[in-house]
Design a protein around this nucleic acid. Sequence first.
DNA 1: CATGAATGAGAATTCATTCAT
DNA 2: AATGAATGAATTCTCATTCAT
Lengths: 206, 206, 206, 206
Amino acid sequence: MTKRSVIKNMSPRSQEQFEVIRESRKRQIMDTALRLFASEGYDHCSISMLAEQAGISKGLMYNYFNSKEALLSEIIEDGMREVLDLFDPNHDGVLTSEELESFIRRVFSAIRTNMEFWVLYISVLFQPGVRELLKEQQLIRYLERFTPILTDYFRRKGFEDPELEMLTLSALIEGFGALMIYAYPSMKIPDELIGKFENRIIGMYK
Amino acid sequence: MTKRSVIKNMSPRSQEQFEVIRESRKRQIMDTALRLFASEGYDHCSISMLAEQAGISKGLMYNYFNSKEALLSEIIEDGMREVLDLFDPNHDGVLTSEELESFIRRVFSAIRTNMEFWVLYISVLFQPGVRELLKEQQLIRYLERFTPILTDYFRRKGFEDPELEMLTLSALIEGFGALMIYAYPSMKIPDELIGKFENRIIGMYK
Amino acid sequence: MTKRSVIKNMSPRSQEQFEVIRESRKRQIMDTALRLFASEGYDHCSISMLAEQAGISKGLMYNYFNSKEALLSEIIEDGMREVLDLFDPNHDGVLTSEELESFIRRVFSAIRTNMEFWVLYISVLFQPGVRELLKEQQLIRYLERFTPILTDYFRRKGFEDPELEMLTLSALIEGFGALMIYAYPSMKIPDELIGKFENRIIGMYK
Amino acid sequence: MTKRSVIKNMSPRSQEQFEVIRESRKRQIMDTALRLFASEGYDHCSISMLAEQAGISKGLMYNYFNSKEALLSEIIEDGMREVLDLFDPNHDGVLTSEELESFIRRVFSAIRTNMEFWVLYISVLFQPGVRELLKEQQLIRYLERFTPILTDYFRRKGFEDPELEMLTLSALIEGFGALMIYAYPSMKIPDELIGKFENRIIGMYK
DNA sequence: CATGAATGAGAATTCATTCAT
DNA sequence: AATGAATGAATTCTCATTCAT
């Protein structure tokens, strides 16, 4: 009788309990890592530092993630999932005015409520060496699927140059994100101004 | 006989020759470093890699720069100088329509012709650990001096909410930069579209 | 169930086991380092050499000491503790003849039984760059506290020039140490002669 | 006709002049090096630093000395020659009281007037890695030749244990040197006290 | 004789990762 | 599942020495 089976016999519900423990540990690690990666930078945050901050041993991390890069990857995927959840996945490929407004509002909301994720995401996005990592990620593919839908929307709405509108809208959103991130965490753009900005964009494309 | 000629006699390779060598080597190192930092990322580019790519020994870099960070710093300063040269430093604090148009065109031109620098600049800007390095840089101070001038311009032009216009313009420019950089070097936004985008922005604020 | 036992359950190798490992490894590293620093010189002994001699990897040293200098520092402190233990810390500031004799005998004993430490200590003491490291060490402070006590002893004993006696005694001890160390490890001053020397000094100041 | 012969023809007395230049340059380098080695430590003083302080180029040093170690070696030899010059080399192997007094006075004088040399000498002497360098030096051989002469002196003078006297005198001198060096350059032992100390030693062995 | 650019071996140190327990 | 000791490759940086001019 192996040590393993002994443990098994002693705790019949251990299977589910283990699952729960695993999941909570994973969250704990990922939350700490997101915070540290964003504030210290992915490269400058060592596994030691991470383990210490998360209150676990260095070895344990490798029990949950195959490597530091795998951890990053999961964090990014996780953050994206959270972001994507904000968007209606049910649309049929044809965008209405209401759906566009909702989309824009969600984008702004996402940026404002997930700053830590965005800082990490963008800082990683601009580290050329790691870029490849993200190229295959869902968000990018999602956004790429979204652009023709948007372009189509502008065409249907009778905009003279749909592509130009698409570029402008993209730039406005990206630019807003960049401004927010760059300001984070020291400066702050007033909430009221952000609201106006949001409304203006919606007004431009309704 | 001047002191200079004495020195000359003492050193078979003259002062000027050494200066020429130093200057050209420095350029060679900085050019290689800019390229590599931008394409591989500052952190992922080691001195070994840099030396190999530049065709010099590892030690030589330290003959010209005190540290890797000092090298980065000089590259950034250098790039900024080049960028700032694009802008007219002679304006008196009051912006005319023509000056604004000129400014916007120069910004776009700068982004498009110095992509490598911008990729590096932005990637560094978003690396939390190195951010402090740039906070004291000229470009940021320059841009910060520019924002009130722009806001004032919008006020004089009778725009309803000058701050909102300022934010919008900033977002459009930053967003365009981000799009360009993100696309670099694999994708390309068509030149024609960029031209239209530029003209639209100018049209918006004239 | 105490917190301790919880921790125990969590780690198959118990807290105590780790402490034992750490302590023994630390000793192993410090012993090797003392030997090497004394025989090769602190500067000429590289971490590589040390690791090789101690039979560990280069990196492991940094698991136990923050830097090479920290290692040196701990060795010095350790040696001093050992040396200071030889002296009676209970004296009340007033020295008797017996205490002086005991002190001198202990000094000589310390020098003779801790040669490796003394060689390192003195060699470091005379390396200008590292001197500051030792200025704050206990031994020096201890000795500095001792000099007025000795001077006072000579005054009470009716010596004509207590300061001169103090200087002479110090010189005799330092000189003996220097001779021993310089001779180490190739030459040897005969034990019998050392004994006579010791007795003579004691005789001079009783 | 080679470039060399041209120069030769142009300056007929260049041979002697070169000698003078060489000699003065060498002195300049050695003086700077002695000062720096003593104050910064041999290991921590780089050729760059030395060249800068001496106002010459790095390469030039190698024109006069084959290596950094050769430079050290020459400095040591040079300092020893200076020290040895203080002693009467003419004695016939039999020491008189007057000669001993003169010897001791010279030793003390040497220590006090050549502190920089002694600091370097001792610091090098105690760096085990470099010790071998000095083992073959003249001063040590000289001193080794001197010990039997001293022992013989004490025997002839009727001292009970000549070897013990020899050891005591050596310890007193070495100890005084160590005290001086250790105090250098921050503390100072009062000149008057040194004088008394000197006289006491002379008194002890006359 | 004199220069300083250039080299490359080697230094201290960091850190992702492995593994015995 | 959990620990942290151990590894070793890679990193930044230093410096004695060489060499073309």
